[in-house]
């Protein structure tokens, strides 16, 4: 199995898990789903610079070729933003649960109790 195949499948699995969880109606699965989606996107962005091994990203006299440094910078930015946003959503969801007593994303009341 090639590296491309492995990376592509990993992105696919992460995205599928993320989409499934985001479509759940409660805040906790939604937050997890958003985290999964952002992992998938980070991997995807990283792979967009092409998969290269054993090559330096910055100038080196002895280097035969280079790996693209830009996607690494983009991924770093994306990670920082996604991390901050996840923290924000967690606090917001907690606050909403405490004020409204429901953890439904659409703000509905809880029909069944104890689950």
């Amino acid at each position: 199995m090639t590296m491309e195949m492995l990376v592509a499948s990993a992105i696919a699995v992460l995205t599928a898990a993320g989409v499934y969880l985001v479509l759940r109606a409660r805040t906790f699965p939604v937050v997890l789903g958003l985290a999964f989606l952002s992992y998938a996107i980070n991997l995807f962005l990283f792979a967009m610079g092409r998969l290269v091994i054993n090559r330096p990203p910055i100038y080196d006299k002895a280097a035969e070729g280079y790996t693209d440094p830009l996607p690494q910078a983009l991924v770093l930015t994306a990670i920082v933003i996604a991390f901050g946003m996840t923290a924000f959503v967690v606090v917001l969801a907690l606050r909403t649960f405490l004020e409204t007593g429901a953890d439904h994303v659409d703000g509905r009341e809880d029909a069944e109790t104890g689950s």
Partner: peptide, 10 residues
Amino acid sequence: RLKVGVQYVV
């Protein structure tokens, strides 16, 4: 506001 806030953020 918090209810719609969650939807808007997500």
